[in-house]
């Protein structure tokens, strides 16, 4: 009996496995490339009249190079993004880490946060707001690829453009997607800096999780 009580724990995987960390940092760099080169392209014909990004914010010293950065970055973004989505689904990471999102929990987390009660002791569990933000930014990333494709090839994918309400609307949607991602980035980076161990975990892998226990131990519990 005593023997069965002994938990047969094997060392688990790091919270952020190596492939995930690589994809995260590749994405971080590529997203910066896409965003700042996109600002360079934006400036050639502003969408919000009266608002343009200064030269400091642009990647590429003029439009052609912003465009070349953007059209080079898109491959890295798309390939890395597809790899991340396949990994997230196949490993079960999306299901276990990001779902379910319960509205009541979202409200509670927001209220807690407003009272400066940010619980971040346990890195292995995301709170409801984190889950929601991660799902939104993943969807925004996918939407950027779709609206980007519509802007890049508005004749070859004319059906897609029509679905979005025309070329100019597709441009606005692509811009809005960027704004959502930048908004996420501001929150994400701020929190990572406020709770540095989250940042370190994305570099080192973080605490080990998912320790294996024997069937017998399962029965006892």
């Amino acid at each position: 009996m005593r023997e069965t009580m002994r938990p047969l724990v094997t060392a688990g995987r790091p919270l952020h496995p190596l492939p995930l960390r690589i994809m995260h940092w590749v994405n971080a760099v590529v997203m910066l490339v896409m965003i700042t080169s996109g600002w360079g392209i934006y400036d050639d014909d502003v969408i919000i009249r009266g608002f343009h990004f200064g030269s400091f914010w642009r990647l590429g010293d003029w439009a052609a190079w912003s465009l070349n950065w953007h059209f080079a970055g898109m491959w890295f973004l798309a390939i890395n993004g597809v790899a991340y989505l396949v990994y997230g689904v196949a490993s079960g990471r999306f299901r276990t880490k990001l779902l379910p999102i319960r509205p009541a929990e979202v409200v509670r987390t927001v209220v807690d946060t407003l009272h400066f009660r940010i619980a971040h002791e346990d890195l292995t569990v995301y709170n409801a707001v984190q889950k929601l933000l991660y799902v939104i930014v993943i969807l925004a990333g996918i939407a950027q690829v779709v609206t980007g494709l519509a802007i890049w090839k508005p004749v070859q994918f004319s059906g897609l453009v029509a679905l979005m309400g025309g070329f100019q609307t597709a441009r606005v949607l692509h811009f809005a997607g960027m704004a959502i991602i930048v908004g996420f980035l501001v929150v994400h980076v701020t929190l990572a800096l406020l709770v540095p161990k989250t940042l370190l975990a994305m570099l080192s892998g973080g605490p080990r999780v998912g320790a294996q226990v024997s069937d017998k131990e399962e029965l006892v519990r």
Partner: peptide, 19 residues
């Protein structure tokens, strides 16, 4: 060479010139 370029970006965004 492209990844080298990506590293350049991570450090800073170059100044701009008029088109």
């Amino acid at each position: 060479r492209a990844s080298l370029g990506l590293c350049v970006l991570a450090i800073g965004v170059g100044p701009a010139a008029a088109q």
